[in-house]
Design a protein around this nucleic acid. Structure first.
Lengths: 135, 135, 135, 135
DNA sequence: GTGGTCTAGACCACC
DNA sequence: GTGGTCTAGACCACG
């Protein structure tokens, strides 16, 4: 479980961590009942304050991805949280809008946007398959 | 030129304004040498402080979309700013990544993401064509 | 007497005019007792409001370069105003400072600044000589 | 890092601050990764409103001199921004022109202008060398 | 503590 | 009328 944070990213550090953990779960790197590093451990590894990692874990717990057992540790939850598709689509819409808008502002063709998206989808699936197989 | 701000949007107001003006320029609603509403006027209409609109205009000016003439007003610039395609693609990549990643996390098929993107592309182009024709 | 104004210049229009008239006097284009165009005439030629030209003439009159005879017109004054050299140098110092500072910030060699200054000095003197001869 | 603002300067306060910080970076007073005073702190020291210092920092950030890390502070950027020499020279030309023109209007010899420029160049370099050595 | 944003005023120069 | 600057507050997210 490798987490990378970039201080220059516009997303706050705790969200960068939470997102990467969530992606790891979705991609199969982390499976239900797998134990996560303690937030102190991870904080040490990332050279940041434990409070920031704690904030990320809290966020993941609120969203149902993980749960903590007092005295035992933090574990991946069994049921990956599912939101109504309508809600999800409406959350994703502004992101899609921004993508096409900025691409159009920058003079890109729509096909180039599709290419870009395809690359990222492939990267995601590739990772996922790869992880499903090994380890 | 209708600007809408939504307090629920996580983007700050001045960026919401700047983005909408930039889109209006890219979409043909606003053409070179068109005069923008004065920042005070727009502030009055949006019921926000003029300084916030000013900040949006400052942002657009330093990005090359608009320019100001002392005592005259603010005008759409002739040359739409163009960035190297490579840079632009690298800026867009994290957005695309987030889109496919969150969609996958939420259990959406890739085709559903493409549908969503297509809708937004259509919305953008529709607006553009519509405005290219009228007025 | 050709005056050029550029709205995009950071100097206000009335100062652009005043400076060019003053340079014309220093360069010999305009000689003592020469009559200037009326401010309305010049305003018409420059396609700006007469008030702006008036403001330029007022400034020049305050500085002693020109004077007006009621009902006759505006004329170049006999004595070009002379300020104490110390005062003048102190006025020029911030300009010199800005020149070397911005050049240094931009990575220019001092010799390149001197070259630039030489070019402008040559341009000024060239104009001056040329005008002393003709007309 | 001592900043001085002079109300008599025709440049707005935020530009005075930005210029001095930029000069400090160019002159070696401030080095890459050095932390700047927080804008509030500097505002307190200068007895002006924080927003004005913030405006100066924003200007420096968009020009590439500095960057900010959320919650950490503001730091000198690694790469000093470089503009094409041609552009820079054309920006400097009006300043040079004004210098020789006003000097000539005031009756100064060209050599006196060169002396003045030399003094300012020496002041700038002296500062720079001094700071390169100490601390 | 840091930066980021916003409000509700004010005064100025310019056209 | 326009834009440009400044003040004196405020609240927020982040680490």
């Amino acid at each position: 479980m490798n987490i990378y944070i970039s201080p220059s990213d516009d997303a706050p550090i705790y969200r960068q961590i939470a997102r990467q953990v969530a992606e790891a779960i979705a991609g199969g790197h982390l499976r239900p009942d797998d134990q996560l590093q303690s937030h102190r451990e991870l904080a040490l590894a990332l050279v940041i304050t434990p409070l920031t990692v704690k904030k990320a874990y809290d966020l993941l717990e609120r969203e149902g991805y993980i749960h903590t057992l007092r005295g035992k540790g933090t574990f991946v939850s069994a049921r990956p949280p599912r939101r109504p598709k309508r809600d999800l689509l409406e959350d994703l819409r502004p992101i899609a809008r921004r993508l096409v808008s900025e691409a159009h502002l920058g003079g890109l063709e729509y096909s180039e946007v599709l290419d870009l998206l395809g690359e990222e989808q492939h990267r995601l699936l590739g990772d996922s398959l790869e992880n499903g197989r090994k380890k």
